[in-house]
Design a binder for these strands. Structure first.
Length: 514
RNA sequence: GUCCCGGUCGUCUAGUCCGGCCCAGGACCCCAGAUUUUCAUUCUGGUAACACGGGUUCGAAUCCCGUCCGGGAUACCA
């Protein structure tokens, strides 16, 4: 037994951003670990020194944290199977390599990169059915090795693959699969400088970290075969494998972090996508929660998740459904939460307002709750609350449609000026927003409030419009345009309530004056 | 080239293991209608799929074979 409880890992290489595909792999590992009551760990595969960077490590860590994919062992934790950076485990690889060398499972290869590349090209040019290392150094005598060493050649260590042998594996996703080892060549385990390559480091660490289940992208399927043989050579038990299909880009190819237009997880964060919506959406790429439900919580996912239920076919990423999912989460959020979480995208809202006008801002956020899908969309929509707007094209049209509308605007301004609307920002609005919760809904009882409520404003407005003898709709549109500068937004009387007396009167009169 | 995997509405999927409950269900998108002071939300309805061809069977999306199409692998990357 590898370990009494399940242990799963996500093992990214810090060579680029974390995109949705990587995030999903991490999530499936995480969910499987949580579902099985096991441990989830993070291992950093930083052996590609040419491409690994601290910046990209940070991006991966931040991305996972943002999505709520937390690890029990890994960077920043004191797990007992660390260190969790491969470059800090070099002695381990060296020692294991020596064992393999001694047992004959590994051998030094003196072929230069140039020769190997040439070899590959020749094989391709000859339309060879088989492409790979030709085994030139496989059976070098001690004398030949010594001669190479004497020339100053430094050897890679290669793993000696058994000749034609059928390996049968049971993959949690793919089921029973057989692969003949003749499809595989002798692969490099260790570079001359002692830095291991993927398959070798991976196995040494999976053994050392007592990994019981390996969930990773299907591009690793064949690596799984190579690794299985290595486990065997080391007399170690092989973990259970689950090779999940890739997420496809719009063109149907493998989603790559080098693909232009593929966003990193942090870009979604920065654009104001709710993390739980992104989490929820990517969970659905290749896995079904329930036949009739797409929105679920993290806990519900953990309760329902089984790695073997992940589909075998690749899924295309659909930005529109993600967008919808975001809106779904935003609408379900308490307004206070929406306000707080959207705050980074509200630079024009003075910091003090978050304490002095908390209830007002919550009402403002709430009135846009059904109208935004991302936190980042809230900021631009709230501009009219703080500054008299410049009417956009649609607003200008509504303002100029009926020449008589100027008189109505002026007249209504007088009505409002004489009424008891709440004060405008930045005046104190105590007694207004803390009694009236927006958005107002039909058939909602009118709240007790010492200021005019949206319901009352509407009732009085309708009476006013009736006296005026114009159609309600044709009155309302220019008013909205004057007040907000657009033809969209919350119910007009919520707008009036939020804006308060001074601002309403001022803007109506300004519009009336042209 | 060779090996591996896949193929249900445009997209994500349920159903496939244990054939009949599926003339295929849900969601996104799209369209139409309802509500309405705009936009949005909400509600109602609609369009739309078992890749193709053979078998097996009383009966196949489900089992078998072939074809086609798609993806992955084939590194001193991971």
């Amino acid at each position: 037994m590898i370990h009494p409880t399940p242990r799963l890992r996500f093992a990214p290489s810090p060579t680029g951003s974390l995109h949705l595909g990587g995030a999903r792999t991490a999530m499936y590992n995480w969910a499987a670990a949580r579902a099985l009551g096991g441990t989830f760990l993070l291992r950093i595969e930083d052996t590609d020194q040419a491409r690994s960077t601290d910046a990209s490590l940070q991006v991966i860590l931040d991305g996972l944290r943002w999505l709520g994919i937390d690890w029990d062992e890994g960077p920043g934790t004191a797990g007992q199977y660390g260190p969790y950076f491969q470059m800090q485990r070099l002695e381990l690889y060296r020692a294991t390599a020596d064992r393999l060398l001694a047992s004959g499972h590994a051998y030094p290869c003196y072929c230069t990169p140039e020769r190997l590349e040439q070899l590959r090209e020749q094989q391709k040019a000859a339309k060879s059915s088989w492409i790979g290392y030709d085994g030139r150094c496989r059976d070098l005598t001690a004398a030949q090795r010594a001669a190479h060493e004497a020339q100053g050649l430094r050897a890679n260590l290669r793993f000696r693959m058994p000749e034609a042998r059928v390996i049968a594996v049971h993959d949690l996703i793919r089921g029973h699969v057989e692969v003949n080892t003749k499809e595989l060549d002798d692969w490099v385990m260790l570079r001359p400088d002692g830095v291991p390559l993927y398959n070798f480091a991976c196995v040494v660490d999976d053994i050392g970290m007592r990994i019981t289940h390996v969930v990773r992208g299907e591009e690793h399927f064949l690596n799984g075969i190579k690794q299985r043989l290595l486990f065997e050579a080391l007399d170690a038990e092989c973990p259970v494998y689950a090779h999940i299909p890739l997420i496809l880009n719009q063109k149907g190819g493998k989603l790559s972090k080098r693909d232009p237009g593929v966003k990193s997880v942090l870009e979604y964060r920065d654009e104001g996508f709710p993390a739980e919506a992104v989490f929820n959406y990517i969970a659905l790429l290749g896995w079904g929660f329930a036949a009739d439900r797409d929105v679920f919580t993290r806990d519900e996912m953990v309760a329902a998740f089984r790695i073997e239920n992940v589909g075998k076919a690749g899924a295309k990423f659909d930005p529109e459904k993600l967008q919808w999912m975001c809106g779904e989460y935003i609408r379900r959020m308490p307004p206070a939460q929406l306000l707080d979480r959207a705050r980074p995208w509200l630079p024009h809202v003075p910091a003090a307002a978050f304490t002095s006008h908390r209830a007002w801002l919550e009402n403002a956020a709430a009135s846009y709750q059904e109208r935004v899908q991302l936190f980042g969309e809230l900021g631009p929509k709230l501009g009219w609350l703080f500054a008299d707007p410049v009417p956009d094209e649609a607003a200008r049209k509504n303002l100029s449609k009926d020449p008589a509308s100027r008189q109505w605007l002026a007249a209504w301004a007088d009505v409002l000026a004489a009424g008891d609307l709440p004060p405008s920002w930045p005046h104190d609005r105590a007694g207004a927003d803390d009694h009236v919760k927006l958005p107002s809904k039909k058939d909602q009882p009118e709240p007790a409030c010492r200021f005019a409520t949206p319901q009352r404003i509407e009732a009085e407005c309708r009476a006013f419009v009736e006296r005026l003898g114009v159609k309600f709709g044709s009155f309302v549109h220019p008013v909205r345009a004057a007040l907000t500068g657009t033809d969209k937004g919350p119910g007009l009387f919520d707008v009036v309530f939020l804006l308060g007396k001074d601002a309403c009167v001022r803007r109506l009169r300004a519009a009336a004056a042209g």
